[in-house]
Amino acid sequence: MRNDHEAVVVEQHVHRDDVGARMGMWLFLFTEVLLFGGMFLVYAVYRYQHTNDFRLAAMELNTGIGTLNTIILLTSSLTVALAIAAIQKKNKFLSILLLSVTILFAFMFMVNKYFEWSAKFEHGIYPGSEELLNRSNGQILFFGLYYVMTGLHGLHVIIGVVILLFILVFIIRDKVTFDNYVKLENAGLYWHLVDLIWIFLFPLFYLIQ
């Protein structure tokens, strides 16, 4: 009996450092913050320099679609946070469901983005277009920043979807369980960062009056 008990104890001793894993993820997120921070800095200086042009150009963006995408991303942040709570409560099915909903929201976001960008392209507003180059410098800069910053953000959404899909498979195959879910936590952290960046992009591009 005693030997059996000891065997169980040895088996329980896993070589894993979840705090370290999360800290590594946070350090990576800080580099992401600095990457976007640099772009927000460029935005801030040019907006200061071309206040009126930025206002004129921003009025052409679709506030409705921007608001809808904000709601979609905030809700997807909720579902990924709930997916972690579900796996902690040993509810594998609910966790899989919530993670799938998160991925669905991400696709909805990208579909909206596609329609938004297509509409701009149809109006002849894209980097280097004749229509845009005939405008003032401030407006050219605004749309340049709009495409680069929402584009890089969109790229992060796509990377986030790939990561969340991997985690979904891990949960289904019991590689991520109620006792070992740091991979889900870290994927969630990445997804929340995507949401965080959008929280700032939204008022700075869509809500200038």
């Binding site: 705090v19 709930l82 972690i84 006792d179 879910y181």
Partner: peptide, 24 residues
């Protein structure tokens, strides 16, 4: 046996939904 590394407590479903409502 719960893994001791995950002992730090997390909020439940309710807290997350409240935060989401506040964000909206």
């Amino acid at each position: 046996h719960e893994n001791p590394k995950h002992k730090h407590h997390h909020p439940g479903y309710g807290t997350y939904i409240l935060v989401w409502l506040a964000l909206l």
